[in-house]
C-alpha cells in the first residue's frame, strides 16, 4: 500500500472503528470476536483499497463488508466445531462424557503436532478468536488462519481414510 492509501485507510479507520465495533458487538455479543470482525473488515479494505477509495460511500462499503464478515465468521466457526463433532470417531470409553469428547489431544494426538493441538483447542473448543490466538503466538491473524486451515485439511484427510 502506498503512503496515501495508508493515510486514507487510517483516516477511515479512526472515523468508523467505533461504529463498526458497536455493530459487531451488537451482533456477536462478544467483545473479542467483535474486535476481530472489525479488524477483518479493515483487512479486506486493505485488499480492496482501490475499490474502497473509488466508492462514493465508503462508510456504507465498510458496513456492508462487516455484515458479510459477521455472517461468514459465524458460519466458519459453527462449521469447524460441527465438523469436529461429526467427524469424531466415537470412542466407547468416552460415551456419555461431553468433556472427554473435547479432549482433543487424546483424540487427535496421533494426527496433529503439539502446537497444532494447542491452536485447535484454543480456537475450536475454547472459542478463542484468530486475533487472540495471533496475539498469544506473536504471528499475524492471517498466519493463524492459515494454520487452522492446514489443521482442518489434516483432520479431514486423516479421518476419512
Amino acid at each position: 500500500m502506498s503512503d496515501a492509501e495508508l493515510k486514507f485507510l487510517e483516516e477511515l479507520y479512526r472515523t468508523h472503528y467505533q461504529k463498526l465495533f458497536l455493530y459487531a458487538n451488537a451482533v456477536v455479543k462478544h467483545r473479542e470476536v467483535a474486535e476481530e470482525a472489525v479488524q477483518d473488515t479493515f483487512h479486506i479494505a486493505c485488499l480492496k483499497i482501490a475499490q474502497l477509495r473509488a466508492s462514493p460511500n465508503s462508510a456504507g462499503w465498510l458496513v456492508q463488508t462487516l455484515k458479510n464478515v459477521l455472517r461468514n465468521m459465524e458460519r466458519t466457526r459453527s462449521s469447524l466445531y460441527s465438523s469436529l463433532q461429526r467427524d469424531l470417531p466415537y470412542e466407547e470409553r468416552y460415551v456419555g462424557s461431553r468433556r472427554d469428547e473435547e479432549n482433543i489431544s487424546l483424540l487427535y494426538g496421533d494426527t496433529l503436532t503439539e502446537e497444532e493441538l494447542s491452536l485447535l483447542q484454543r480456537i475450536a473448543v475454547e472459542g478463542c478468536t484468530y486475533l487472540e490466538a495471533s496475539r498469544e503466538l506473536g504471528i499475524s491473524a492471517e498466519a493463524c488462519r492459515k494454520r487452522m486451515q492446514r489443521i482442518r485439511d489434516k483432520l479431514r484427510k486423516n479421518l476419512t481414510h
Binding site: M1, L47, V69, K146
Partner: peptide, 23 residues
C-alpha cells in the same frame, strides 16, 4: 506492493471477493 507476507489464499481472497460490495 508487498501486500502481505502470507498468501492471500482462499480465506482472504475468497472472503474479500465475496464480502466486498461490487462497485
Amino acid at each position: 506492493s508487498s501486500l502481505l507476507p502470507e498468501a492471500v489464499d482462499q480465506d482472504a481472497a475468497a472472503l474479500a471477493a465475496a464480502s466486498s460490495p461490487t462497485p
